[in-house]
Design a protein around this nucleic acid. Structure first.
Lengths: 156, 156
DNA sequence: TATTGTTATACTCTATAACTATA
DNA sequence: TATAGTTATAGAGTATAACAATA
């Protein structure tokens, strides 16, 4: 039995590796190039940082861990967002080594717009599927989301 | 009815946007950091380029189109792979403007090893799912793969 | 003229190492 | 000493614009 399970897992892993990178290339390309003024363009990484900060402010270290990058990398990435006035750095009064990152109002507004446009674009692809296919995709994505959250503690 | 379908599509799009970027962050991190000697590390982009070239040689323009990047970007990316002796550039005798890109033996070998290691890593995550969950994930990924291929002409 | 590819330039993302400030 | 964050440096991926070679 364990052999059967392993064979399933391997087949599933192969399919995932075959499918996801191509999808991301598409998503990233759209986010970079399409349907946004140049000033409003976001990379996938920036999109995800803003998304995390939307729900609750974080220290730089926390944000770096969630994104699986070093604090150094995150510090540089935040530099860009601060320059664009999408995020603020603020000293933590309780531990002055820490920096609290918050979305600005401008960041909130931009994220909402990009979110809405991204969803509309992806939804237009998905509408080309039959209802049954949509249901299968949705169901599979539910499993995948739970897998991702178990894997890396990496939330939306 | 069309309203119902659209609502499904939007929900599905939101779930996809919530799930996939986090997964990629994980996959990319593993590919960069884990289980490979430093000399053998590949970015996701490099991994995908080698994968496409594994099946059949391509011109630079074809490869750039498949990856949704400009020829300029692809030329730079290929520079890196040529320096590492994973890919060769070769003039097309039939149209001397064109350059044919081929995997070297070293590229074949490295790709096979990275492929095998990546699959093993992802399979170990997937093994933590129940058999039923694995089946749902597999089914959803089949739909997703067909969607990706329709979307961008972007294969494996 | 149009197409293919490269180079120059500039910005983002990434890491390691060295550093400062705080605990 | 240990932790949080920044800066210096370097390599990779990205685009636009200007260019050369070929068709």
């Amino acid at each position: 039995m364990s052999n059967t399970i392993d064979a399933h897992a391997r087949a599933c892993a192969g399919l995932l590796l075959e499918t996801i990178p191509g999808l991301m290339r598409n998503l990233g390309g759209r986010l970079r190039n399409q349907s946004l003024l140049d000033d409003e363009a976001l990379t996938i990484g920036q999109y995800r940082m803003l998304h995390v900060l939307q729900h609750h402010p974080e220290t730089l270290r926390e944000l770096a861990d969630k994104h699986h990058v070093t604090p150094s990398t995150m510090s540089r990435s935040i530099d860009v967002l601060v320059q664009r006035n999408l995020v603020t750095r603020q000293d933590d009064p309780e531990d002055r080594r820490k920096v609290i990152l918050r979305l600005t109002d401008e960041g909130q507004t931009l994220l909402a717009r990009v979110d809405q446009e991204s969803r509309a674009t992806v939804a237009s692809w998905i509408e080309q599927l039959s209802e049954a296919e949509q249901a299968r995709l949705y169901d599979g994505l539910l499993v995948l989301r739970s897998l991702v959250s178990r894997m890396g503690g990496d939330e939306s």
